[in-house]
């Protein structure tokens, strides 16, 4: 038992080291605050999204403001219109840091509806 506990503790050491590295600098796209303050959103965005998801899919209650589409619209990078394309993309950057897999973008669009990038170039 002691052995097991010490082994588990040993496994934690690299994790503790990892936290000493700085939190990721994210490309927040247009940014701005439309739902709640950033700290609250960091902790709770998944609850909002899941709540909105079930309401929208099952009951047709579409709260555009807290929809995933709306998140992407503002937070997609101004460089490539995506929230997952690069290391520092808004969603991917933080989720990689926290080692939480995002399942959203296998199905959902990870780019904003009307590309800003192409427009700017033109």
């Amino acid at each position: 038992m002691k052995l097991l506990v010490s082994l588990l503790l040993c496994l934690c050491i690299p994790l503790a080291w990892a936290t000493e590295a700085n939190a990721p600098k994210l490309d927040i796209g247009k940014g701005g605050q439309c739902v709640r303050d950033p700290q609250w959103m960091r902790k709770n965005h998944m609850h909002l999204l899941i709540h909105q998801r079930d309401e929208a899919v099952r009951k047709g209650i579409r709260d555009e403001q807290i929809s995933l589409k709306n998140c992407v619209e503002c937070h997609a990078s101004l460089k490539d219109d995506s929230v997952i394309a690069r290391e520092d993309s808004f969603c991917a950057g933080c989720h990689r840091y926290e080692a939480v897999k995002i399942d959203c973008f296998e199905c959902h669009a990870s780019k904003r509806r009307v590309a800003l990038v192409n427009k700017d170039e033109k």
Partner: peptide
Amino acid sequence: GAAAVAIAPGMLLFDTAHGKTEAD
């Protein structure tokens, strides 16, 4: 927080299952 993420969906689903009047 990450642990909460893992558990929360189930709890939350339970909440919304009863709840509001239907939009459709």
